[in-house]
C-alpha cells in the first residue's frame, strides 16, 4: 500500500503544479505555459512572475507545515497535536503583526526571525502551562485556548493600529496572494530543516512505542522530543512569516497520510510533505478559481476542510 501510494501522490502533485500554472483568472493552455517562461512571451508576466513563484511557494509551504505537524504528532503521540492547534502558528502571527504595526518601516526580511521568536514563546508558554506529563487532551485544549488568545491580541493590535490593517488582515488569514520570488527566496534557507527532520525518522518510530520502550531501544527520549519540536517550530515560523497562519494543514496532512501509508516515519515523513503540498496547491487553486477575479485566502479554504476534520478527531478521542 505504501509503495503504491507514493507514485500516485507524486503524479497528483505534478498534475496540480501544472493546474496551478494553467488556471486562474485567465486560463492559459498547456502549450503556452512553457513559452510563458521565456522573457518577451505574451504570458511571461502571468506565468513566470505571478503563477510560478506562487505555485512553488504553495508546494513548499504545504510540505513544510505538514512536516511540522508530523513531527509534533510524532513526539507528542497525539493525532490532535499540530503547530496550529497548539497555538504555535498564532504565536508567530502575533509577533509578526506586532512587528509590522509598531515598526511599519522596518525591513520585511526580518519577519521570519520575528515569527520564530513568537512561535518559540508560544511553545514555551504551552510547555510552562501544561508541563511534560500532561494529558494530550489538556494540551490540545490549552493550545486552542492560547491560539484564541493570540488571535484576539492580533485583533486588538489591528484596531489600535488601523493604518496597517489592510496589509495585516490579508496576511493573517493565511494567503498566497501577491507572493513572489522575493518571498520564495526568504523561505529557501529554512528548507535546510527538512533533511534534519528526515534524520529523525528512525527514533520517531521508536518514541511512538512509548518512552520506556524507546529508551530501552537506545533512544534519548527527551533529546529527541526537543529536537523534533525545535525543527517543527522553525518550519512553522518560517511558513507563517511568509503566508500567515494557514490553519489545519499541519493537523490534517499527517493524519491523512498515516491512513494512506501507515505509521513508519521513513515513509510517513516524505509522504506527508507530498500530501501537504497537494492540499495547499488544491486550496490555492480553489481560492483563485472559485470566483475570479476575486480571490479567497487559501487559509480559509484549508479551514473549511480542516475544522470539521479536527472536530471529528476530537469527538473520536475518548
Amino acid at each position: 500500500m505504501a509503495t503504491r501510494s507514493l507514485p500516485i501522490l507524486l503524479l497528483t502533485l505534478l498534475g496540480l503544479l501544472l493546474a496551478n500554472l494553467m488556471f486562474g483568472a485567465v486560463s492559459i493552455p498547456f502549450k503556452q505555459i512553457l513559452d510563458g517562461l521565456q522573457i518577451g512571451s505574451e504570458h511571461y508576466f502571468t506565468v513566470h512572475e505571478y503563477r510560478l513563484p506562487r505555485t512553488i511557494l504553495a508546494m513548499l509551504v504545504g510540505a513544510m507545515m505538514a512536516l511540522a505537524g508530523a513531527l509534533v504528532q510524532g513526539v507528542i503521540r497525539n493525532p490532535l497535536a499540530s503547530p496550529d492547534v497548539l497555538g504555535v502558528s498564532h504565536g508567530a502571527g502575533l509577533a509578526a503583526v506586532f512587528y509590522m504595526s509598531f515598526f511599519p518601516n522596518a525591513d520585511i526580511s526580518w519577519l521570519p526571525a520575528v515569527a520564530l521568536v513568537g512561535s518559540l514563546m508560544a511553545a514555551l508558554m504551552l510547555w510552562w502551562l501544561c508541563g511534560q506529563h500532561s494529558s494530550t487532551i489538556k494540551m490540545a485544549i490549552t493550545g486552542v485556548a492560547l491560539a484564541a488568545l493570540y488571535a484576539s491580541c492580533i485583533d486588538f493590535l489591528m484596531l489600535v493600529k488601523p493604518l496597517e490593517i489592510n496589509n495585516a488582515l490579508l496576511w493573517l488569514t493565511g494567503s498566497l496572494w501577491g507572493r513572489g520570488w522575493n518571498q520564495l527566496s526568504m523561505l529557501l534557507p529554512w528548507l535546510l530543516l527538512m533533511p534534519f527532520a528526515l534524520w529523525l525518522a528512525k527514533p520517531l518510530n521508536l518514541i511512538h512505542l512509548g518512552d520506556d520502550s524507546a529508551i530501552s531501544l537506545g533512544i534519548k527520549a527527551n533529546k529527541l522530543r526537543l529536537a523534533s519540536l525545535a525543527i517543527a517550530v522553525g518550519l512553522t515560523a518560517s511558513c507563517v512569516a511568509i503566508c500567515g497562519p494557514i490553519g489545519f494543514l499541519g493537523l490534517v496532512a499527517p493524519h491523512l497520510t498515516r491512513k494512506l501509508v501507515g505509521g513508519r516515519h521513513q515513509i510517513l515523513l516524505p509522504s506527508t510533505m507530498l500530501v501537504g503540498a497537494i492540499l495547499l496547491l488544491l486550496a490555492d487553486l480553489a481560492a483563485r478559481t472559485i470566483d475570479p477575479p476575486i480571490e479567497l485566502p487559501a487559509g480559509i479554504m484549508t479551514a473549511i476542510i480542516g475544522a470539521p476534520y479536527f472536530l471529528w478527531l476530537l469527538l473520536r478521542t475518548k
Binding site: L209, G210, R258, G262
Partner: peptide, 26 residues
Amino acid sequence: TQPIPEGIKVKDLVAYGRSPYTGFWG
C-alpha cells in the same frame, strides 16, 4: 503497559527491536 501504535504492522513492530543494530535509516 504499551501504547497502541497506529498504522504499524506486526512485522514492522518486531523489526523495531533491531534498532540498536541498524543504521540511521533503520
